[in-house]
Design a protein around this nucleic acid. Structure first.
Lengths: 176, 176
DNA sequence: GTCTATACAAAGATAGAC
DNA sequence: GTCTATCTTTGTATAGAC
């Protein structure tokens, strides 16, 4: 099972609706495209109404960030519980990021306010890398490498004509 | 020698002054803090005057991006010409990024308009990774891994208490 | 829970005088 | 080459009515 052993903050149903809309918008157009006005418009209401449900825009970001950690963590946990290997984990990591690239970007770029994250979430989401290599330092190096290739791929930073598939293969091999 | 075999676009002296100020500001406060008004203020002039020297803000970004590619490339080339080893290259890469973290972030994050880059610059700046491992696919994987660890470190994304030094060591070892 | 109206701030960019 | 004045857009957020 991939139940999350983390206490996530409760959300009212309206909050959940708002965050779902925010997530749709971010995934479709990126965080930059998320303004309180636009978000409200997506919901058929006006921007000021949002402030009855969420204190400010930063709260939206934090909640989406939590969702992203949960999603990445779940996907990776699920895979390694079936097959605890470096290649399988990397495939899962890459695929999940590719499913929600903008959310992934949001979750992994820029400063992170750890105080706003539920206790243990960050550690839990990184655990699969440790499980797979059995060493915290190597786990960190592997995660960093996976992130690097992921974000460069998402940002279109690998030169045109690159054999990205093969690069992922080399990464798996280097850490096997 | 580490002369650049790339034709860089010429800059007027005033353009150079403006870009130097832009670079100082970006390095001190990040790209987000660079507005045309603020940039002008740093130079003791008003924002509209900038448009006599540069077409728009995006041109500033492009030029800083070129500078960053040149700087990273030069540092890496210089090191591998002295010692063409994975650990040496990684040390140089990490150190140069740490020297100008905001410029590094600007150069490696977000979309890249390759048409705006001087011909060959991108390839030239990545060449040291190829030189060191002798295979384009492995070079790409190594570069991606280095970038991942670099950007996570710069963004403070490695959990507090991490042994970053050791993670760099593992990365070098994995690709040795 | 939603609205209108509004305050407030900052940004990129242009026109035209000097 | 620089200025002032201005346009235009966009954003976060609050007050108070309904």
């Amino acid at each position: 099972m991939t139940d999350i052993p983390i206490e996530l903050p409760a959300r009212s149903s309206r909050q959940a609706e708002i965050l779902a809309a925010a997530r749709r918008r971010v995934e479709a157009e990126g965080w930059e495209a998320l303004s309180m006005r636009a978000l409200a418009a997506d919901l058929g209401i006006r921007a000021p109404s949002l402030y009855k449900h969420l204190p400010n825009k930063d709260a939206v970001r934090t909640q989406l960030l939590i969702d992203a950690f949960v999603q990445m963590g779940q996907a990776c946990w699920q895979v390694i519980e079936a097959e605890a290997s470096v290649p399988a984990l990397l495939r899962a990591y890459r695929a999940t990021a590719a499913e929600s690239p903008e959310l992934y970007r949001l979750a992994t770029s820029g400063p992170l306010d750890r105080a706003a994250l539920p206790d243990g979430l960050e550690e839990w989401s990184g655990q699969p890398f440790f499980t797979v290599v059995g060493n915290p330092v190597i786990a960190q190096a592997l995660w960093a490498a996976a992130h690097g290739l992921t974000i460069l791929e998402l940002d279109g930073r690998l030169p045109p004509g690159s054999d990205v598939e093969a690069a992922w293969g080399e990464l798996a091999e280097a850490f096997d």
